[in-house]
Amino acid sequence: MTQSPEERIADLGLTLPEVVKPVAAYVPSLRSGGHVYTSGQVPMVDGRLDDTGKVGAAVSPERAEELAAVCALNAIAAVKAEVGELSRVRRVVKVVGFVASDPAFTGQPQVVNGASELLGRVFGEAGAHARSAVGVAVLPLDAPVEVEMIVEVD
């Protein structure tokens, strides 16, 4: 018998968090037809930002990769809140990762791997996705990373 995504999350030693409350005028996720779109998720843990600053300066690339996984876990929670059970996810279609980068930092793809690899562990083959990793000057609340995704659901 195949494990559910929720069981895989538990096997990874992770707990699916409560959906992060919006900090402005938007919703955490929205279903349109057979897709769920998440708003950008920053690395909030227990209601507070887990780290701040620019990657390549105040935040190491390795730490930023960990934070990208936190963002992905928050996005997964937003999807679950929208559809009820993660087994309804047929495919992670697209992931966009934003990295608040020091001007000399060019490792955005490696940072966003933290999100992509977690999605692969949680959803298996259905977690393989198209992706963009973008360096930006600043993110909300001075977050080092932000991740949004689109998933196909039944």
Rank of each mutant, 00 (worst) to 15 (best):
G107A: 09
D50M: 06
A64Y: 03
K54I: 01
V59K: 10
F105L: 05
A72M: 10
A77E: 09
S60I: 03
F98H: 01
N74P: 13
G47A: 09
L118N: 11
S132L: 13
A69P: 06
V55E: 05
S132N: 12
E62A: 13
A133Q: 10
A78Q: 12
P61I: 03
I76A: 08
A100T: 10
A133S: 15
V99Q: 02
F105I: 04
L67W: 04
R121N: 15
V89Q: 07
A115L: 04
G120W: 10
L67P: 01
K94Y: 14
R63C: 15
A128K: 12
R121V: 14
L49I: 06
A104Y: 03
V111C: 12
S60G: 08
A128W: 05
V93I: 15
Q41F: 10
R48E: 13
F123V: 05
Q110F: 02
P103T: 15
K80L: 04
V83C: 12
G84K: 09
G127N: 05
V70R: 02
V59L: 14
A126I: 07
A69W: 02
F123M: 02
G114A: 13
A75M: 01
L73F: 08
N74Q: 05
Q110C: 00
V55M: 03
F98Q: 00
T52F: 13
K54P: 00
S116P: 02
L49R: 00
E82Y: 04
K80Y: 05
A130E: 13
G53I: 12
A64K: 09
V42A: 10
A115G: 06
S60Q: 06
A128L: 12
V99D: 08
A100C: 11
P109M: 02
V96F: 05
P103E: 15
S87P: 03
G127R: 02
A58G: 06
R48M: 09
E62R: 10
E82A: 11
D46H: 13
G84Y: 04
R63N: 15
R63Y: 15
V79C: 11
A69R: 03
R90Y: 05
P103N: 14
V96M: 01
R90L: 15
A77D: 13
Q41E: 13
V122S: 08
